[in-house]
Nucleic acid binder design. Structure first.
Lengths: 216, 216
DNA sequence: GAACGAGTCAACAGGGTGTCGAGCTACGGC
DNA sequence: GCCGTAGCTCGACACCCTGTTGACTCGTTC
C-alpha cells in the first residue's frame, strides 16, 4: 500500500521495478499466456509453460511477474479497460430511442467479451482462485450496475418506465444474467443460447424488466 | 466403462466395491468435506485434510474415493436430487395463479441452494476444475430449463403469454440469471442482491419477461 | 576498470497428488 | 483350529508444481 518516495509509474502488477529494457520478455510472457489460453484452460497452464513459451526459465518468469495470476490480471486489466471504454462510449452517444440505446449497450458488452473469448473464460475460472481477479471483476461489474441503475432511474423519473424493485437490484439481476448467458455461450459447456441469439434474447428480457408493468 | 456381469449396485462415484463394513469411513469423509467447506474454499482443502478429518491416512482415502472431486460430486448428487425433487413437487402442485406458481418455483429453487450454501459455492468453484462437476451442473440446469420452457410454451398456448423469443432461449436466460444472482447472494463477493430481495426481484423479471408484451 | 544494477538460471525447499506393495484383521469353509 | 481370501490400512515412493536463493553474466556509468 505504501509507495516509497520514488515514482512507481505503473504500480504493482508487472515487473517489480518498471524500468529498463527487458520489456520484450514481459510482452512475450503476456503473448504466450494469451496464446496458450486459446488451447487450454488456465489451470492446465503452468508457470513453466509460460516461461518456456517466452523463451526464459521459470525463475526468470518470477522476475517479471509474481505469479501466474498476475499475468492473467494484467491481461484482464486491458479487457476491463476496453469494456469500460466501450460502455462509456455507448452510454454517452445519444440514441434514437430507449430500445436502440439498450440494444447498443448489450451488443457492445457482448462484443467486447466475444472478442476476448479465451480471456473471458479464463477470467471466470480464475475468479474462484484469485482474490485479485475476483476484485477486478467486482469492479467492472459494479461500474456496469451503476450505469444501468442510473439509466433505469432516469427512465422512471421521466415516466417512461414504471416503478418496481430498487433500480440497483434490478440492474444487478439483469447484469448477472448478461454475464452468465454470455459466459455460457462463449464457454460452450452446458445448455447455452446460440451466439447470434444472445443479444436479442437479453434485450427482450431487459426491456420487459425495465419497462414492463407488473403483470396480473 | 465396462461393468462386469456382477451387479454393481451403486455405480462409480464412491468405493470401488460397494460391499462390506467400512461404511462409516466413507460417511466420515463426506461429513468432513461438508464441515470443512463451511470454513474454507474447496481449493484450500487437501485430500490429506479430508483423510485426517475422517481419521484415516491419505492412501486410505483413495480406497474410498478416487479423488477430492469425487467426494464433492457425491455431495452434489444429493443436492441435485433434492433440487429436482423440490422442483418436481412445485411444478406438479397446482397454484392459485401463474404469479403464485412462478413465485413458489423461484422460492423453492432459492431455498434449496440457500440450505446448502457452502456446497453451492464449492459447486461453482469446482465447475472450472472438474469435467464431471460441469456435467452434473449441466444436467440440473437442463432439467430446470426444460420445465420452464414447457411452462412458458403452455402459457403462450393458452394465450396468457405473448409470443417472443424461443421459449427455450428465454428459459436459459432467466435460469442463468437465477443461478448467478443466487450464487452472488450466497458467496458474498462482489455486488449482490440482499438475501431477502432475491426472490421478489427475480420474480419481477421472470413475470415481465414471460408475460410482458414487446414494449415500444 | 571498479562498481552497480538489470537480467538470468541451477538448485533447492516445500507441498500437493496419486500409486504400489506389504501388512493387518475378520470371517467362512474345511 | 487353521487357512485362504477379501476388505481395509498405511509407509514409502514417484511425480509435478510453486516460489526462493544465491551466484553468475553483461552492459553502463563514472
Amino acid at each position: 500500500m505504501s509507495d516509497g518516495a520514488a515514482p512507481p509509474p505503473v504500480a504493482g502488477r508487472g515487473r517489480r521495478p518498471p524500468r529498463a529494457g527487458g520489456d520484450d520478455r514481459e510482452l512475450a510472457i503476456l503473448a504466450t499466456a494469451e496464446r496458450l489460453l486459446e488451447e487450454r484452460t488456465l489451470g492446465a497452464i503452468s508457470v513453466d509453460d509460460l516461461a518456456r513459451g517466452a523463451g526464459i526459465s521459470r525463475p526468470t518468469f518470477y522476475f517479471y511477474f509474481p505469479s501466474k495470476d498476475a499475468v492473467l490480471l494484467t491481461l484482464l486489466d486491458r479487457v476491463a479497460a476496453e469494456a469500460d471504454a466501450t460502455m462509456g462510449a455507448v452510454f454517452d452517444t445519444p440514441a434514437a430511442g430507449p430500445r436502440e440505446a439498450w440494444q447498443r449497450a448489450l451488443a457492445a458488452y457482448h462484443e467486447t467479451f466475444r472478442r476476448h473469448r479465451a480471456l473471458t473464460v479464463a477470467w471466470a475460472e480464475a475468479r474462484s482462485t484469485s482474490e485479485a481477479v475476483r476484485t477486478l471483476w467486482g469492479e467492472v461489474f459494479e461500474r456496469w450496475v451503476q450505469r444501468c441503475a442510473t439509466a433505469i432511474e432516469a427512465e422512471r423519473a421521466r415516466g417512461a418506465a414504471p416503478a418496481g424493485p430498487a433500480a440497483r437490484d434490478l440492474a444487478i439481476a439483469l447484469t448477472s444474467m448478461n454475464e452468465r448467458v454470455i459466459y455460457g455461450s462463449l464457454s460452450g459447456d452446458g445448455p447455452a443460447v446460440a451466439d447470434a441469439d444472445v443479444v436479442p434474447v437479453l434485450l427482450r428480457v431487459w426491456l420487459a424488466a425495465v419497462y414492463g408493468d407488473e403483470p396480473h
